[in-house]
């Protein structure tokens, strides 16, 4: 008896809510009648692809790009902020160690990406300065900054923990993540000064060597 009441309630709630949706769909049918060719759509994302996030970022040239702009190549990714003096340079050196473990031909197929925690200070110009300071090659290395929500979401999906300390610094995890070409997390290198061998071996595999 109770079950039936609940079922009825649920059915009622669902109908009541779907109704406005149906009206909307009907309304938009007018526009649909112009029969525009369907826009080309990229193939659906993998179930665990982080490119489903759809967040927008600015690179160090000031161009806005969706996260999914990285799709198509394996990505070695870390989060940091450019005014971080202690751990972040070590994290970048760890990524360079991975870079050095790859053959020149392989390097052309891999993206190294840095995402900032610090929307307030890491402007595209600050990222550009960081590129020079850390001597990050133009091809291969991409630097991104986004709004607080995009940062939160990316950190959440990577399992990165971070916390602004209120004085311009951040406490944060030290993680290097490897994404495959579809944006699925395949490996995470944990901590600083970790040997590059395991990560490099995975990249060899992803690159089909």
């Amino acid at each position: 008896m109770k079950r039936r009441v609940l079922a009825r309630f649920a059915a009622f709630a669902a109908t009541a809510l779907l109704l406005p949706g149906l009206l909307l769909a009907h309304g938009s049918a007018h526009r649909g009648s112009e029969e525009l060719p369907p826009a080309p759509r990229p193939a659906a994302f993998a179930d665990h692809s982080i490119y489903q996030l759809g967040s927008l970022w600015w690179n160090d040239r000031g161009a806005q790009q969706p996260l999914s702009a990285l799709r198509g190549r394996p990505v070695v990714l870390a989060m940091l902020y450019t005014s971080c003096e202690n751990t972040c340079p070590v994290l970048v050196e760890d990524m360079k160690r991975i870079e050095r473990a790859l053959a020149p031909a392989e390097l052309r197929g891999v993206t190294f990406a840095l995402f900032s925690y610090d929307p307030a200070r890491d402007t595209p110009a600050a990222l550009a300065a960081y590129r020079l300071k850390r001597n990050l090659p133009d091809d291969g290395w991409r630097l991104f900054t986004g709004d607080a929500d995009a940062v939160l979401e990316l950190a959440a999906v990577l399992g990165v923990k971070y916390k602004p300390d209120g004085y311009g610094d951040f406490q944060h995890s030290n993680l290097i993540t490897v994404l495959d070409a579809e944006g699925v997390v395949r490996h995470q290198q944990v901590g600083l000064n970790a040997p590059a061998a395991e990560t490099a071996a995975l990249l060899h595999t992803l690159l089909g060597r």
């Binding site: 959440a156 923990k161 971070y162 916390k163 406490q171 901590g191 600083l192």
Partner: peptide, 18 residues
């Protein structure tokens, strides 16, 4: 911001030990 809770010496080892 559930992911702002960093535990020093977390067993996962990606933080705190250093």
């Amino acid at each position: 911001d559930f992911n702002s809770a960093l535990v020093t010496g977390e067993s996962r080892g990606d933080m705190g030990l250093e």
